[in-house]
């Protein structure tokens, strides 16, 4: 097999252009390899590309690990980071990997969609910034081109003052989300809701957001309405992890609780 070990981004994108499979923390790719679903013979390891590990202000390098986000990320992203796999997984797995894998259950994704993050991608030809709703197109499907590498996540200049993350799973740790959610709210009431595991891609509950953003001091009935609207906007399915009905119910309950946390 052929393995590149670049230390610069230019060398990394060059290798990708030549057809190498990018390898970051390995926590997704190696499962595929171990289960013999994939067998990449030409691989570019990104662990030692310093630029990918860079994290400055609102630009988080794709190679930043969950371990680092857990301790220094924006509140809801740090809360999400703490639920990613195990300590071992958080030491290896990266936010870039979460985005590229694009699992509906990706723990970092509800936050990214809730704050309208953009995905920075780069090829040997140059780079572009892709809004999340253009980037994610289906279950584990993105618009990343074969010769492109995700290099960073761009968060907005200013983040909502209040943020809360929650994830439903039947085990206390190391569990794939049955439902994931992030609610953010600014001091002037603008609310966003990012949802995971209730659709083919991470989603926003736009109608619920619009309704609750217009209410300065939500009452019990506003909260109930919000909960119902989030449930209605979810697009869950039944699979071996849960049922459509439960996911629809739980996502509403969770969103409401997270909103309540933001309102306190």
């Amino acid at each position: 097999m052929h393995f590149h070990h670049p230390t610069t981004l230019a060398d990394a994108t060059q290798a990708v252009a030549e057809g190498a499979t990018p390898l970051a923390g390995g926590t997704d790719l190696m499962v595929e390899v171990n289960f013999r679903h994939r067998r990449p013979e030409h691989v570019v390891g990104l662990r030692k590309v310093e630029e990918l590990g860079a994290w400055e202000g609102n630009r988080i390098g794709a190679g930043v690990t969950w371990r680092r986000l857990e301790h220094g990320g924006p509140q809801a992203l740090a809360e999400a980071a703490r639920t990613v796999g195990s300590p071992q997984i958080r030491n290896a797995g990266t936010i870039g990997g979460n985005v590229v894998t694009a699992s509906p259950a990706g723990d970092g994704l509800p936050f990214l969609v809730a704050v309208d993050a953009k995905v920075e991608v780069m090829s040997a030809e140059g780079g572009r910034l892709v809004p999340w709703d253009v980037f994610f197109v289906g279950v584990k499907k993105t618009t990343l081109a074969a010769d492109e590498l995700v290099t960073a996540i761009h968060l907005p200049e200013s983040l909502p003052e209040r943020q809360a993350f929650g994830k439903v799973g039947v085990r206390s740790a190391m569990v794939i989300a049955t439902v994931g959610c992030v609610v953010t709210r600014t001091d002037d009431g603008k609310t966003t809701v990012g949802l995971g595991s209730v659709g083919p891609t991470p989603l926003r509950a736009s109608r619920a957001e619009e309704m609750i953003s217009s209410v300065t001091r939500p009452t019990e009935s506003d909260l109930a309405e919000f909960q119902k609207m989030v449930s209605d906007e979810a697009r869950p399915i039944t699979d071996h992890r849960s049922t459509e009905e439960y996911r629809r119910h739980a996502v509403g309950v969770l969103a409401r609780r997270l909103l309540e946390r933001c309102l306190r």
Partner: peptide, 9 residues
């Protein structure tokens, strides 16, 4: 620890 564990539900 509460139900939901690290998921903060």
């Amino acid at each position: 620890l509460l139900p939901g564990g690290s998921g903060l539900t």
